[in-house]
């Protein structure tokens, strides 16, 4: 247990020291919401129904950028090989990385909600919306963290990450957009979207945690 805590400590320290990485994802998210708000305003006067889609597409891309280099520092510095021989379970390595990515992304998303509240003139920082956002974020971060382990072994990895992650995340996108729409009193089609979002999140977290040791194996 103390080894797992030490790994988590390492990831939180890395999160602080390498803040330039995920802060650039935050800047990307801000630019994305600004550009959407601007471009959609040119096309239609009624932008509110488009808001859930705007938010979640921004979240997913920011998530892919922020978690895309999850283990890059460890692999480059040789820490990863040391961790592989250390008496720490590989699941703990994975969970610690998910937690640190999650922290970064929740911060980014809260900032995005604040920005969108101003730009779209809609109260977004409600407990319900924040809960939906946090649930969906656990769902996609667990998957993108697993997919980011491709490391530097593949050329043009930056392009590959969204190409691999987004099709797998289609159910999450549908459920999250509809659930967010429901929280904003938009029509949702009546299916239990929150349940689907929770089910996807559970499967993505458990499945990724089970499969991570197999990718990490030397």
């Amino acid at each position: 247990m103390s080894a797992a805590a030490a790994v988590l400590g390492k990831d939180l320290r890395l999160l602080w020291r390498q803040r330039a990485g995920w802060l650039s994802a935050a800047v990307f998210a801000a630019i994305s919401v600004l550009t959407y708000s601007f471009a959609l305003d040119l096309a239609t006067g009624e932008v509110r129904p488009l808001l859930p889609g705007v938010l979640w597409v921004t979240f997913l891309f920011a998530g892919i950028i922020a978690s895309g280099r999850s283990f890059a520092a460890e692999v480059e510095q040789g820490t990863f090989d040391a961790l592989m021989v250390a008496p720490v379970s590989r699941t703990a390595l994975y969970v610690a990385k998910v937690v640190s990515n999650l922290l970064a992304l929740l911060l980014i998303e809260l900032a995005v909600l604040l920005l969108a509240t101003i730009l779209f003139n809609t109260a977004l920082l409600t407990p319900e919306l924040i809960a939906i956002m946090a649930l969906g974020t656990v769902g996609y971060v667990s998957l993108t963290t697993l997919l980011s382990t491709l490391g530097s072994r593949v050329r043009s990895r930056e392009v590959l990450m969204p190409v691999l992650a987004l099709p797998l995340l289609v159910p999450l996108l549908i459920a999250a957009v509809r659930a967010t729409g429901g929280a904003l009193d938009l029509p949702t089609g009546g299916s239990p979207w929150l349940l689907l979002l929770a089910a996807f999140t559970v499967w993505s977290a458990v499945g990724s945690a089970l499969l991570f040791p197999m990718v990490a194996e030397q």
Partner: peptide, 17 residues
């Protein structure tokens, strides 16, 4: 493997959609 297991979830989500 993830992709294959994802297929029924995708099917269900888009059917609801």
């Amino acid at each position: 493997i993830i992709g294959f297991v994802d297929i029924p979830i995708i099917n269900m989500s888009v059917r609801w959609w």
